[in-house]
């Protein structure tokens, strides 16, 4: 697995100050630090490389040109960037008119009587991505942040504006929903 660059927080502050003063080199460093991660996040949410590219560019543009709105008070720059990406995702869905926020619990996905039948190790990445996109918005977000982006529960909590406990509970429910979604795909 090719690792994503570490999402910095403390290291970002001097760079942010330099970008605010018009330093393009600092902007480039922040771009390099976050563009891949946001692209990865966007691809996991949207499933199309073109859409992911647009969303990543849009997110980085907003992040680096609206630094006057970023107040480094308890929220890391990385969390701010992810929040922008999340909002851009919601905007994308709205523009597309796509109703993706249907809770999985209300969907008609079959549940296997024997969960061990699902050989998760054999699932393709595409299967996982597709099943993931059947989850609710929050469930997708928590799984992507925790497992695709390799963030801690605390970092995910800051991005999502929830407590760590709430994120952990959401993560548990999201995994259960993902499992059911995969069962549903396997049975269809």
């Amino acid at each position: 697995m090719q690792p994503l660059a570490k999402a910095a927080s403390d290291d970002d502050r001097p760079l942010i100050e330099r970008v605010r003063r018009g330093d393009q080199d600092a902007a480039r460093i922040l771009f390099e630090r976050y563009f891949d991660r946001i692209y990865n996040y966007a691809y996991a949410r949207l499933g199309r490389a073109e859409d992911a590219e647009d969303l990543a560019i849009d997110t980085m543009t907003r992040s680096l040109t609206r630094l006057d709105l970023f107040q480094d008070q308890g929220v890391a720059f990385s969390s701010w960037v992810y929040r922008i990406a999340h909002n851009a995702t919601i905007d994308h869905y709205r523009r597309q008119g796509k109703a993706t926020l249907v809770p999985l619990e209300s969907a008609t996905l079959p549940v296997s009587a024997d969960p061990s039948e699902l050989a998760v190790e054999q699932l393709s990445n595409e299967d996982l991505h597709d099943a993931l996109r059947a989850l609710t918005d929050e469930q997708q977000q928590v799984l992507i942040l925790r497992f695709f982006q390799d963030l801690t529960a605390a970092q995910a909590a800051q991005i999502m504006g929830k407590s760590v406990g709430a994120v952990q509970a959401l993560q548990h429910r999201a995994l259960g929903s993902l499992e059911r979604a995969l069962h549903g795909r396997a049975n269809n």
């Binding site: 692209y39 996991a44 998760v120």
Partner: peptide, 21 residues
């Protein structure tokens, strides 16, 4: 089961943008 599923998710290769992108 959920632990295994979580591990499988962690093993998903990150989708990276093309150099051109």
């Amino acid at each position: 089961r959920l632990e295994r599923l979580a591990e499988r998710l962690r093993a998903v290769d990150p989708v990276m943008p093309s150099p051109g992108a």
